[in-house]
């Protein structure tokens, strides 16, 4: 079976933290532990100050194994308010990445 992963179009990430809380709720993670993490990235460039967010998927991400048995997508994918996380077969996501600027790919263990 093809292995699935997450494609994160982080250029669209607004830093709203919905993915983090969706993940915590789904897995009942305690404080201090999460499957996904949003970080602010401020760059002081010659023309202006850039405010971006990067998204890290942690070792605790299981791509919502329980959820995706049905029709559901992972909790972070569903609730991302900027709809910038995609779930699917890694091979397809890599292809997609060729068309999508500023994206990162997460492959689970």
């Amino acid at each position: 079976m093809a292995k699935n992963g997450l494609l994160i179009q982080y250029d669209w990430c607004t830093g709203c933290h919905a993915c983090e809380v969706a993940c915590k709720q789904e897995h009942n993670f305690p404080v201090g532990m999460c499957g996904i993490k949003v970080n602010e990235l401020v760059s002081k460039a010659p023309d202006k100050v850039y405010v971006d967010y990067t998204v890290a998927v942690t070792r605790f991400c299981d791509l919502c194994a329980e959820r995706v048995k049905g029709k559901d997508v992972p909790a972070c994918v569903k609730h991302c308010q900027a709809t910038c996380i995609k779930y699917g077969p890694l091979a397809a996501l890599v292809k997609e990445q060729e068309k999508q600027p500023r994206t990162s790919l997460f492959a689970p263990k």
Binding site: A18, H79, Q81
Partner: peptide, 8 residues
């Protein structure tokens, strides 16, 4: 389908 951190 989306929800914010507070809703979640």
């Amino acid at each position: 389908g989306r929800l914010c951190a507070k809703g979640l």
